[in-house]
Every structure is written in C-alpha cells, then in structure tokens.
C-alpha cells in the first residue's frame, strides 16, 4: 500500500484571521497562540469516504426535498452548480458537498432563528450531493434572501449559501459561504470582510451562468470550489536529519 501524498501547506494569506474584530463574535473565540505546524500523517492524509448509500438522489433538490407534494418554495428558482477541484486544478471526485441557507425571505428553518420574515412551509434549506468523476456537483434551490444580524447595530448579510466540503483527506476539510454576483451587501459585510484578499472574496462569488439556465424555468449560478492540492513525488523525499 502506498501512503497518500502530503498536502501543500495552507496559504493563510487568503483565509480570514481567527481574530477579526469587525466580526465581534470572533474576538472571544479566536485562539491567541500560534498553531503548531504538523507534517501530515495518515490521519490527516486520509478522510471519510462517502458513497451513494449515504444520501438519496433527491437530496440535492431543495425545491422538492422538503416541499409538500405539488407545491414548491417561494422565491427565485436557481441552479447552483460547479466543480470541486484541487490547487493542481485536478477534479476532486466522489466527495460529499453539503449546503444550507435561509429561505427567499432571509429566514432560516432553525429553532434559534427569530427573524420576523416567515418560515416557508415548503422549504427546508439544506441539501447534499456527491461529486461525479469530473468533480461536478449541482443543486436546485431558491436564491436566499439577505437578513439583518446583530454585530454592529445595522449589519446585513448578503445573500449566501453555506457550503461544506470534505475532499480526499481530512486536512482538506472546508466550510465556506457562496455569495452572488452583483450583491451590494458583499463589500460591507463584516463576515465577508474578514477575508484579507480581495481576489479570495471574488472567488467566493458565484457568477451568473446563462448557459446553464433552464429557459422559462430556472436561472443558474456557477460556483467552483478549490481544495488544497497534494504534492507529487518527483524525487524521493530525504527528510531533514535522515
């Protein structure tokens, strides 16, 4: 058995720092000490494997996965599709992608959400799928609404969909948020702006994809996800001191 290849070290310049005072909740939840850097061992290089017995075919269709028969949620019907790739631009196949979001009015189906916009009886707000051999995935849903949140007195989250991805090793585990092209709330959102690199924010912004729309039915946005890449063995590694 060959050991899986090590991952490229994470480029922290594109990730939000733990301590981001503009996002107030981060202040008491951010470690103060530096993280200890680890060579990857098998526990970081491997990760859980998911298959089609773990999920059901309709789990990626948020228009129907919680709706009453014959009904559908209120809102702008969208397809969110893309590919999971690694830093080497290779597809990441057979990996689990899970999403969750507010409804079209900006309200979450969660016992702790008390925003005055109503719950949609036909919308759960979560979906999941497994990427195909090319790393591709697709969800059908409604475009989520913006909503206010307590941070400064008047903060609004841009429309967003939360995305969770596994990859092929636990060190690739990632949760992020997908925003939508042209949303004026993106540049003034304290959570978006925890990210120091403007290009990294652009990379979290899904693009209108007219070619993927269904005419007279559903509009489409493209959102690719990039996970950490693995080194390839060009020469045997002679570890320092060996």
């Amino acid at each position: 058995m060959t050991s899986p290849e090590q991952f490229y070290q994470r480029d922290w310049s594109i990730h939000p720092p733990a301590y981001s005072p503009g996002y107030k909740t981060s202040v008491a939840r951010s470690p103060s000490y530096s993280k200890i850097s680890l060579d990857n061992s098998v526990g970081e290089l491997t990760g859980p494997v998911f298959g089609h017995s773990d999920i059901d075919a309709g789990d990626n269709d948020l228009l129907t996965n919680f709706a009453q028969p014959g009904q559908s949620p209120i809102g702008e019907r969208i397809i969110l599709h893309g590919r999971v790739l690694d830093e080497n631009a290779r597809p990441v196949p057979n990996t689990l992608v899970e999403i969750w979001q507010a409804n079209a009015g900006g309200r979450y189906r969660h016992k702790k959400d008390t925003y005055l916009a109503p719950i949609d009886p036909n919308f759960g707000g979560c979906g999941r799928t497994i990427t195909d051999e090319t790393g591709a995935f697709a969800f059908r849903t409604v475009k989520p609404g913006a909503y206010p949140w307590r941070n400064f007195v008047n903060n609004w989250r841009p429309a967003h969909i939360h995305v969770s991805v596994f990859g092929s090793g636990f060190a690739q585990r990632l949760i992020t948020q997908c925003y939508f092209q042209g949303d004026p709330l993106i540049p003034i959102c304290p959570i978006v702006q925890t990210i120091p690199d403007p290009d990294a924010i652009e990379q979290l912004t899904a693009t209108l994809d007219l070619n993927a729309t269904i005419p007279l039915d559903t509009v489409a946005y493209k959102f690719d996800i990039v996970l950490r890449g693995r080194r390839s063995t060009l020469f045997e590694n002679r570890l320092e001191g060996n």
């Binding site: 830093e87 899970e98 969750w100 969660h110 979560c126």
Partner: peptide, 27 residues
C-alpha cells in the same frame, strides 16, 4: 496553480446543513 477557496464561518445555523434534526426538522 489554483488558490484554495477561502474559509468562512459555519455560523450559528450550521445544524441546518449538517445536523438538521438538531435545528428542529427531519428531512
């Protein structure tokens, strides 16, 4: 090389996506 997608907080409603029964519904 591509750049890794930046991380964002899982937020207070992570249960909806990853543990919906805890959020209050069965899907």
């Amino acid at each position: 090389y591509l750049k890794e997608t930046a991380s964002q907080t899982a937020g207070p409603y992570v249960h909806i996506g990853l543990a919906p029964k805890a959020a209050g519904f069965d899907i």
